[in-house]
Amino acid sequence: MISDSPVPAVVPPGRMARNPQPVLGLPRGFELRPWRPDDADALLAAGQDPAIRRWNLLHVDSTEAARRRIERMHRRRQAEESAIWAIARTGGEAIGLIGWGDLDLRGGSAEIVYWVLPPARGNGVMVEAVRRLSQWALDDLGLHRLRLCHSVANPASCRVAVKAGYSLEGTMRSALLHADGWHDQHLHALVQGDI
């Protein structure tokens, strides 16, 4: 029998907005926490880093622009459009960013976005951050499918995806415009039951 009722939302509206953004612990003295106004300098530094600008299309050219961007992160989370965390030493400064863009609570999916500043690269913190935030999204928030997309010219992101347990599903041709032209992208995914 076919029901006249629409398919229910995977995650009910308001589940994220009515709760404070959690602080999520990571191994080795790191944490994921909400961005603060005093993190503006870290965001500005990221906006000046050539690798972050290349792969994340991040353009922040002043401390004031960074503060506005942090305010927008909080507004978008409250509107349940995205959810962005700072990667930081416990109680310390932001060294990176991770979160969910293209958040679709009704459909139960989101795309992970991330970057880390140069001094924190190569120590495995991003893999741990992706694992922890993915666990939160599936188990605590209740999403069903998580995507991780990156340029095929960015092997570091591919290693993060694989080490964090995301399966490679294929290549999306000419999927994202970067400063140097169109890039093919790898599509990785993690779904309920994978971890």
Score class of each variant (00 low, 15 high):
residue 1 M to P: 03
residue 4 D to E: 07
residue 4 D to Y: 01
residue 5 S to E: 03
residue 5 S to M: 05
residue 7 V to W: 03
residue 9 A to T: 01
residue 10 V to N: 01
residue 15 R to I: 01
residue 16 M to Y: 00
residue 17 A to V: 00
residue 17 A to K: 00
residue 17 A to D: 00
residue 18 R to G: 05
residue 18 R to P: 00
residue 19 N to Y: 00
residue 21 Q to G: 00
residue 22 P to F: 07
residue 24 L to H: 07
residue 26 L to R: 02
residue 27 P to H: 06
residue 28 R to N: 13
residue 29 G to C: 09
residue 31 E to K: 00
residue 36 R to F: 07
residue 36 R to C: 11
residue 37 P to V: 13
residue 38 D to S: 12
residue 39 D to S: 14
residue 39 D to R: 14
residue 41 D to G: 12
residue 43 L to P: 02
residue 44 L to A: 04
residue 48 Q to E: 11
residue 52 I to S: 09
residue 52 I to W: 05
residue 52 I to G: 04
residue 53 R to L: 01
residue 55 W to H: 01
residue 56 N to G: 07
residue 64 E to N: 11
residue 64 E to T: 13
residue 65 A to E: 04
residue 68 R to D: 13
residue 69 R to D: 05
residue 69 R to K: 13
residue 72 R to L: 15
residue 72 R to G: 09
residue 79 A to Y: 03
residue 81 E to P: 07
residue 81 E to H: 10
residue 88 A to R: 02
residue 94 A to R: 11
residue 94 A to P: 12
residue 95 I to F: 09
residue 96 G to W: 14
residue 96 G to Y: 13
residue 97 L to N: 15
residue 98 I to Q: 12
residue 98 I to E: 12
residue 100 W to S: 13
residue 101 G to F: 06
residue 106 R to S: 02
residue 108 G to V: 04
residue 109 S to A: 00
residue 109 S to G: 01
residue 110 A to F: 00
residue 111 E to L: 01
residue 119 P to F: 09
residue 120 A to Q: 08
residue 122 G to I: 08
residue 123 N to K: 04
residue 123 N to V: 09
residue 125 V to Q: 09
residue 125 V to L: 15
residue 125 V to T: 14
residue 128 E to D: 15
residue 128 E to T: 05
residue 130 V to S: 02
residue 132 R to E: 15
residue 132 R to T: 15
residue 132 R to V: 13
residue 133 L to T: 15
residue 135 Q to M: 10
residue 139 D to W: 06
residue 140 D to T: 15
residue 140 D to A: 15
residue 147 R to T: 13
residue 148 L to F: 14
residue 148 L to Q: 08
residue 150 H to N: 08
residue 151 S to K: 03
residue 151 S to N: 08
residue 152 V to E: 15
residue 152 V to C: 12
residue 152 V to Q: 12
residue 156 A to S: 10
residue 158 C to D: 08
residue 160 V to W: 09
residue 160 V to K: 01
residue 161 A to Q: 07
residue 162 V to R: 11
residue 165 G to D: 05
residue 166 Y to I: 05
residue 171 T to C: 14
residue 172 M to R: 09
residue 173 R to P: 14
residue 174 S to V: 15
residue 175 A to T: 12
residue 175 A to E: 09
residue 176 L to R: 12
residue 176 L to E: 13
residue 179 A to M: 10
residue 182 W to N: 08
residue 182 W to D: 07
residue 182 W to K: 07
residue 182 W to S: 13
residue 183 H to E: 09
residue 183 H to Y: 06
residue 183 H to D: 11
residue 190 L to V: 09
residue 191 V to K: 08
residue 191 V to R: 06
residue 192 Q to W: 15
residue 193 G to M: 12
